[in-house]
Design a protein around this nucleic acid. Structure first.
Lengths: 167, 167
DNA sequence: TAAAGGCTTCAGAAATTTTTGAAATAGAAA
DNA sequence: TTTCTATTTCAAAAATTTCTGAAGCCTTTA
């Protein structure tokens, strides 16, 4: 397989994967492009490579920086900005966990707490709701703790201790 | 908080959560509705409760059955079909992992395998691509193994052994 | 066999998300 | 200060996803 073909296939697949996880195709592709680029890229290079508009490139690069997956790099004597992606997969995944946990797990836990205050003794429906909410709360707080642990753990610890355990 | 208010809040939040994970709002809401319902529901009840069309209800209930999250229940002397959701959170999450792993992780691993066949010695670009692909492959196969383990494990084992470990 | 009740399908409509491109803004160089 | 280059913003357009509703199908009952 040619390099160009492999690259295109990778960018394409990564975009698709992003889509099915609620991340927009372009953001995922920009990240993929930066992951496989040996040097920092300018907005123009991203636009050219992915055939997207300046606005689109700008907004998604910004979003990737907000997620902590891409950093800005400045060059002396050059007014343009360049960008590099975090390339350590473990750090990438950790960063994604931290972000999504904050944006999604925490709000739902808050809602569940509010709901679990209802009186579950008045009807079968209310009882079922209370039970489901409590089950989910229990599960979610365990998931939350597990993710915290994963995030704090470093890659070596994870690979060593955890992978040994599952053998 | 009233039961009705709690229920609405739950259905709404669960729908939103689904959306940010690439699951459509209605499918997530139907599942939520069935999770908190003490008895099996007919398509008409789902339509009524969520104010959606018959076609929409039918398609999403079918999809939930394909995912193994909802079962059909027949009643003697009644031609209608009723549906119940799997209510054990551990089983629900396991089922979701199995499905998404198959639909998303496996295809990407296949693509990565294909790409990793390129010659990484010809340019810095090709080398960077090869390295990134190999890193992702390594990480993904570990994730794959971890998920397999989680899926095979039962809830008690998980809570006991694993949670003890992270203390 | 016909009629009735319920389920499925899918083309078009509606809603939502993403992208464009040009104007506004920022800030460095002249 | 003015000009020039680059970045940001955002309303409108395009693309994509989801939903509707009615026609057709399938099964049971009369």
């Amino acid at each position: 397989m040619e390099w160009q073909e492999g690259k295109d296939k990778f960018l394409q697949s990564w975009g698709t994967l992003g889509t099915s996880w609620g991340i927009n195709r372009t953001m995922a592709q920009i990240h993929a492009l930066m992951m496989i680029s040996p040097n920092a890229l300018s907005a123009d290079e991203v636009m050219e490579e992915l055939q997207i508009s300046r606005g689109n490139a700008n907004m998604n690069i910004r979003a990737l920086m907000d997620w902590g997956l891409v950093y800005k790099e400045l060059r002396a004597g050059d007014r343009r900005e360049y960008f590099v992606a975090e390339k350590d997969m473990w750090k990438v995944v950790r960063q994604i966990i931290v972000n999504r946990k904050k944006k999604e797990l925490e709000p739902i836990l808050k809602v569940l707490d509010e709901i679990s205050g209802i009186d579950g003794t008045v009807s079968a429906e209310a009882e079922a709701l209370t039970k489901a909410v409590n089950d989910i709360k229990l599960f979610s707080s365990k998931a939350d703790a597990t993710l915290d642990m994963l995030v704090k753990a470093d890659s070596n610890w994870f690979v060593g201790t955890f992978m040994k355990m599952i053998k």
